[in-house]
Amino acid sequence: MIGSTLRNGSLRTGRSFDLGKMDLRQLWIAYLTYPTILLYIALAVASFAMLGRHFPGILPTAVAMGAVIAIYPVAWYLIHRFILHGRFLYRMKWTASLWKRIHFDHHQDPHLLDVLFGSPLNTLPTIALITLPVGYSIGHLGGAAAAMGTGLTVTCIYEFFHCIQHLNYKPRMRWIQKMKQRHVLHHFHHEDGNYGITSFFVDRLFGSYYADARARPRSAHVFNLGYDLQEATLYPWVMDLTGAPPREKPDGAPPQRNAA
């Protein structure tokens, strides 16, 4: 069996993979069989098929695709910094479970593939909201299809590099090494910075970029995003859903090697 069924997960279910214990080959298998990724790929193919039926021309198609590629890093930064790392969602009972699923669980255990990928119930409406108005304004129905297909494709690329950043693996290419180092700092040193995934240009633009651990002291909230025991006492809904107090460090995942 492949790494004792990828050591922690199942090829059939694609669940409970620990990226801290996987190599690159195992990641490719897990990634390409993961239901969320397969759904994104299927919807991207459907979007590009729709583009073929309502083709607006080469220029509008190229502009729609280019606009999505340019907007994506900014949109991700704003969502990541001000929504996923915001504290307002866990302070309301009706959004506490959403915040827990979309980001808290990921910071509590950064290596766990189950919670690294967002739920399609949350991600697909967000992708559509970012891409469809832009594409439609450029090329009507065909432009919207081009934009949506591009957004789904970029999401798949983002998610793969996000996996690489939590994988027990040192990339060969220097630019991927640096990308991984910056993201590891976000998860294991100080969460209020390095919000990008594949690019940290927007972090530089807004002053949230830092290159190494010497740039700032280690955060006490890097694993709980400020939802510590005191906050959990005031706003217990995430803790109730978790079934335990928020952890100050993840369980069961060794430190990433050669990442910092």
Rank of each mutant, 00 (worst) to 15 (best):
A70P: 00
H186G: 00
P250G: 04
L167R: 05
F188W: 05
V45Y: 12
F88Q: 08
V222C: 00
W175H: 11
D105W: 00
Y169G: 02
A211P: 05
W237A: 13
F55S: 02
L112D: 02
S199A: 12
N8G: 15
L113E: 00
L152T: 06
S208T: 15
I69K: 09
L51N: 01
M239C: 13
G3L: 12
A215P: 13
W76K: 08
Y34F: 14
W99P: 01
G3F: 06
G149N: 12
D251I: 00
L234P: 04
V68G: 03
S137H: 11
R87Q: 14
A147C: 10
P120E: 03
T155D: 04
D23A: 08
R12L: 15
P60Y: 12
S47A: 12
L89C: 07
G66M: 13
I58R: 12
G14Q: 02
L225E: 00
C156P: 07
F55D: 06
Q230R: 14
D203N: 13
A215M: 09
Y195Q: 07
T126L: 15
A232R: 13
G243A: 08
Q181I: 06
F55K: 11
A220W: 01
E248N: 03
F160P: 03
L205Y: 12
G252V: 01
E191S: 09
F201W: 14
H183S: 06
R15Y: 11
Y169L: 03
K180V: 07
P171E: 07
L11I: 15
R81Q: 09
P110V: 05
H187K: 05
F200W: 03
Y31S: 06
F17R: 01
P35L: 03
F223K: 00
T233F: 10
F82L: 08
N194P: 11
Y40L: 14
G20D: 03
L225C: 00
A128F: 13
P60K: 11
G9L: 02
R12Q: 12
Q26V: 07
H85S: 08
T36E: 04
K178Y: 03
A211T: 08
L59D: 04
L11M: 12
I164G: 05
P35F: 01
Q230E: 15
D228S: 06
F201S: 09
N122Y: 15
V74F: 15
H162G: 08
H106W: 00
A62C: 07
P120K: 11
H187P: 00
P120V: 07
R25H: 08
L132P: 06
L24H: 11
P245E: 04
R87F: 03
N194D: 07
T5G: 09
R91N: 06
G135I: 04
R87T: 14
